[in-house]
Amino acid sequence: MDLQVLPLAVTMMAGPQIMTAIILVTHRQAVRMSLAYLAGVAIAAVIGTAIARWLAGLLGGAVTLGDPADPGSVGALVQVALVGLLIAFAVKNYLGRETSEPPAWLGTLLDAGPDRAFTTGLLLILVMPTDIMAMLTVGVHLTQHDLPAVAALPFLVATLLIAALPLLAYLVFHRRAVRAMPQVRDWMNGHGWLLNVVVCVLFIFFIL
């Protein structure tokens, strides 16, 4: 098992992903909706990471990724390219902060059912650019260090644990959570741009 990729789990869930988890614990069927969402997140993270490891393996078979300590290696250049994309994404979010609004679909989750929560968990992991980058980074890391896909297990467990934090807070601190979560939800809805910038900065820090 490889703990070096563990911090990337934070970037997997920061942003709309954790916002969704918080919104779902304010649903009238909080536990059922949250479990459906977590199932979607878990399945998507496993599939996405496996695909990323496979793609990195194909790239490693065609082009030598090189020594992880060599800043000129192909693997290092791939990571630099990811950092460049993240910087551009962070700048875009910052410049558009005045007109930034939460995705319209977030507001519809309180009227959704478990099937919608499950699908949302799947899609947020499989189509979000930052999550795709995180899983690709894990794949490249495992390939460079010649590690099997199972070495990503700590990363997957950490991702699911972070996704489950709102539900755990709801179960452990039920009354306080019921009062606090709507306020947290509203704040995050109004500061989505800031969350996206923080995600990018964290991701860049973890890569470098």
Rank of each mutant, 00 (worst) to 15 (best):
L123C: 01
A117Y: 04
P114R: 02
R97T: 04
D67H: 10
V138C: 00
A81W: 12
Y37P: 02
A42R: 06
G60M: 01
A69M: 10
N93C: 07
P129R: 05
G75K: 07
G121H: 04
L136H: 02
L110Y: 00
G72S: 11
P102V: 00
K92P: 01
N93Q: 15
D67K: 09
V138T: 09
T49M: 04
L95K: 14
G60W: 08
V138K: 04
F89R: 08
L126H: 01
L106A: 02
V78K: 05
A81S: 14
R53H: 15
G48N: 11
R97Q: 12
G96P: 03
Y37G: 00
T108W: 02
I51R: 03
N93R: 14
L123H: 03
G113L: 01
T49E: 09
G107E: 08
L77H: 15
H141M: 05
R53M: 00
D131T: 15
V140Y: 06
V41D: 02
A39V: 10
L59N: 03
V78Q: 12
A50H: 04
A112K: 07
L59M: 13
V74A: 14
V127F: 08
A134V: 11
D67T: 09
A112T: 07
I51C: 04
L123V: 12
P68N: 05
G48F: 03
L124P: 03
L124S: 03
P102M: 01
A62K: 11
E101A: 07
V127N: 07
A50M: 08
L109C: 01
T119S: 08
L86G: 02
Q79W: 02
L82Q: 05
S73C: 05
I47T: 10
G121P: 03
A69G: 08
V83D: 07
G61H: 13
P102D: 02
P71S: 06
V83W: 08
A90D: 11
H141W: 15
